[in-house]
Amino acid sequence: MELICPAGTPAAYREAVEAGADAVYCGFRNDTNARNFPGLNFTTEEMGTAIAHGRARGVQTFVALNTFMRAGEEEVWYRAADDAVALGADALILADMALMDYVATTYPDQRLHVSVQASAANADAVNFLVDTFAAKRLVLPRVLTVAEIAALARQVDCELEVFAFGGLCVMAEGRCSLSSYITGQSPNMNGVCSPASHVRYREEGHDMVSELGGFTINRFGADEPAGYPTLCKGRFLIAEEDAYAFEDPVSLDVMDHLEALRAAGVSALKIEGRQRGKAYVAEVVSRLRKALSAPPAERPAQLAQLRRLSEGQRTTSGAYEKKWR
């Protein structure tokens, strides 16, 4: 299985390559990708340099153009696709079917991957995208069990990529409206979930309070590990109980299921985290690279250290071994 690694900056890109990535995915500095954070991402020139750097070392570059085009402003996305193709991207990761159509029609030889943001999680949806746009690979939403992934793999004619480690979206990706409900901006349309412009933190005694769009969404006690300020990881008062309604602050780690994922026919493992620093990228990529070739018994030792880098300093296998359905 290939190891697909994140990079939010040229420095992180170089770290990912050095640490053993088979491919690195990254995006331009605008709202054409779902990690449109301040100071993050690549200019056209930086993207060209990164692609050349990877290619010289046998590492592929996938360019994420995985937001949905805004009516009347399609040119921004078309131009980003044109640039990525001209720069020699090994694949474009797309979510919007209109953009898939543009790329498939204009650049029929360009390898096209379907983003997790397309939310294609059943054989009908996947086969439609493969048949219509000649998609070669599909990144699966984090809502399926390993058994469901195996069943899906038997019914589709494309490569499957699954998230193996990192931030955990628990919603129907590409369809989640929680961020836009509070802030008016979403990863789907603007490339940002819980945009930093709407986030504030304040200290209250030993507690840290996180606010999103003026609403208090969490309060972390002294020394309690914190999480991202997203509504899906917020704490709510439900039936007079103060609890997480959707998901705790926790990251995904399915490296315990490597053999099952391999047997299921998964082609590639994806590490989430383009918003993370280069130190995170270097550490996670190198440990997962070692874990991929290590005997199962030795993997926990490789991966235990990664928990301290994770949201809430905890990890879960999430839906991959769903016990709560």
Binding site: A11, Y201, E203, M208, G277, A279, Y280, R308, L309, S310
Partner: peptide, 15 residues
């Protein structure tokens, strides 16, 4: 850039 900002934030080592 020796450590990851998000990880340090999660650990509550900085505010």
């Amino acid at each position: 850039g020796q450590i990851d900002g998000d990880a340090v934030f999660f650990s509550r080592s900085l505010s």
